[in-house]
Design a protein around this nucleic acid. Structure first.
Lengths: 358, 358
DNA sequence: AGCAGATTTTGAATCGATCCAATGAAAACA
DNA sequence: TGTTTTCATTGGATCGATTCAAAATCTGCT
């Protein structure tokens, strides 16, 4: 007395239609994967059966197990998923990754999670052929998890520490040096650094011992590059305020409040990311300070937004999209030894930097 | 004489470590998936074996087949993958999707392809629990492919035609009407429409029969909304130029060239997307035409960029992120009948529209 | 020691396909 | 007609795990 067509829909399997069409599952499989080798009459019969039974085609879940290859690469971060679409750096990077994936026909899986347990599980169970790991925050943990999967993976924005992991990044020390040198050449002597995180979940002024204990080598390297160059022109770097932000609006503004509360406010700001620098530009303008007349700002990254800000941002450009492309290639052709690439950075001088007043 | 440790690395399976630890694979499996039910001593032994043999943990490929659920939703488009990170509409949509996925712990798989064959294959073999389909270009084909997978899926930006597919969209006719009404209320009588694609791979002035043959109902609906409202105030809509763009810079500029080559150029432009409208703004400014004094422009979508353009863009805002969130929920709780949601749109008046000169 | 009950462990079945060596049938040739 | 080739089909093995009913072991109690 139950329904005619419905029933409790156990999904149709290849074997079901094989039986219905009166052929072996081997033949049924061939109809879908190599139709040319099966006789036309049989092929049609099987296809008809499939049609009749509402068969959706070979289930990729089954195929996967046999084939081994997923044909997708995972991009992992400890940020929420929306990071991929919000953050300018991430977006350019993803554009590069997309390009390389499109070219090779690979798909992209976005892996992320709110909390740490979820993250671990998501990485452990991600169906991918390899990982590209965004080492922004929570980088070390991510790298550890990715490594445990024993799949090819490459770390982005390399925290150069561990030579055993494949990584693609830039020479942060040299890049930061370029930024600092640009400003000292212009005559600046009073600096403030708005830093990326040195370790998880902390913001505020940074003490030297915290720098030494930095989880993120990238951040430390940039600071090293800055300070080394400042020291070269005789600046007492121990007096240079370094404020650790979370690379977001709120903490950056807090940092600006702090460093400009000083009696001798900086005439130049070294921002470790364009995101931070752009927030600074806005904050300074709201505060009535003119850029670059009152304060110069130099960013880091070279995101597209930096070219169209008011004023346009002087920055250290990384070949972001190229890094993405390289990362994909490193995964797909993961042979040989761990590949570590260090790409060049470039100082791009725009309107946000100029000589200090007077 | 070959290497000591290497060998030809057949990856370690759960069964291997089970044998090594002297337990059944059932027990070995339990050690990883429900450690609490296995005796501590055994657990340690198995874990030690795993460690020693370099076992990466249960392979998700195997688990997947048994479990059935992938725990990821696929987002499909016929555009290249970079579309997700470049296009403003897509980005806001993806932000909404991300949010909902983060909340439920689901992952996101980006599915796309350069050519049609690849696309079909990629959709057929995507490891996902459901699809969200971006029906921008190539929409109908995409919907067809997604439907064939017999997985839950929802079409975005609904081409309302087919009531049997779940879809989430806005009332395009009413939205377009709002835009046109706004301009006629301001006194405009000479219009041009810059349209989204009516069918694949075509651009140029559109004839009525092409509209009737439109593949994309969304585009047709918006046009209907525009023209109906224009007709209401006595405008001969057969004289209103409708230029079909590919929603990109080049074709939009070509459309502008065309409609402004007329003896009686429009005083108001109805753009079917903010992307088109923003290009128009730029083109008009470069051409020395002032907005809104010489020409008014009204967009469609309500992307963030529209709020910060010069001048800010008057537009019909869709609740884009909300649509994304709804779509995810529709997939994950895909029970009951096909869910079709029509969300409200809103006219947002900004600086790009004003009364016509004189 | 004997037995009920609780706790662990086992091993076969299952998930849904692909692959391939063997078999069968038909065509080609002597 | 017998033998070789060619082509199509079969069915068992495999991919790597999970699940669960049944068997084995351990506890506690009389």
């Amino acid at each position: 007395m139950s329904s005619l067509t419905a029933g409790n829909r156990r999904p149709v399997r290849l074997a079901d239609i094989a039986k219905a069409a009166g052929v072996s599952h081997g033949t049924a499989s061939n109809v879908f994967s190599r139709p040319e080798i099966v006789r036309e009459e049989v092929r049609d019969r099987v296809r008809a059966a499939a049609e009749a039974m509402g068969y959706a085609g070979p289930d990729p879940k089954g195929r996967l197990l046999r084939a081994g290859k997923v044909n997708a690469i995972g991009v992992a971060t400890a940020e929420p998923l929306s990071y991929f679409f919000d953050d300018p750096f991430a977006r350019v990077m993803m554009a590069g990754i997309s390009q390389a994936c499109d070219a090779t026909g690979a798909g992209i899986s976005l892996v992320s999670a709110a909390n740490n347990e979820q993250l671990a599980w998501n990485i452990q169970s991600a169906l991918v052929d390899g990982f590209i790991v965004f080492c922004i925050e929570g980088g070390s943990r991510l790298v550890e998890l990715a490594r445990e999967r024993k799949l090819p993976f490459v770390a982005l924005d390399l925290d150069s520490e561990d030579g055993s992991v494949a990584a693609i990044g830039v020479d942060n020390i040299a890049g930061a040096g370029l930024a600092a040198r640009h400003l000292t050449d212009l005559g600046h002597r009073r600096f403030a650094v708005l830093a990326l995180p040195f370790a998880d979940d902390r913001t505020g002024l940074v003490l030297p011992e915290q720098v030494r204990a930095a989880t993120y080598a990238g951040t430390r390297d940039r600071l090293t590059g800055y300070l080394r160059e400042l020291a070269r022109v005789g600046i007492d770097t121990s007096k240079v305020p370094v404020y650790e932000t979370a690379n977001d609006v709120a903490s950056t503004k807090a940092g600006l409040e702090t460093v400009f509360a000083s009696d001798t406010p900086p005439t130049a700001i070294l921002a470790m990311s364009d995101r931070i620098a752009l927030v600074a530009l806005e904050w300074l303008s709201a505060r009535g300070l003119r850029v670059p007349d009152d304060v110069s700002v130099v960013g880091f990254d070279g995101v597209p937004e930096a070219a169209v800000s008011e004023p346009p941002l002087t920055t250290i450009a990384q070949p972001i999209a190229e890094m993405g492309r390289l990362a994909v290639r490193a995964i797909l052709e993961s042979d040989g030894p761990v590949s570590r690439h260090q790409l060049p950075v470039e100082l791009i001088v725009r309107g946000s930097s100029g000589p200090p007043r007077g």
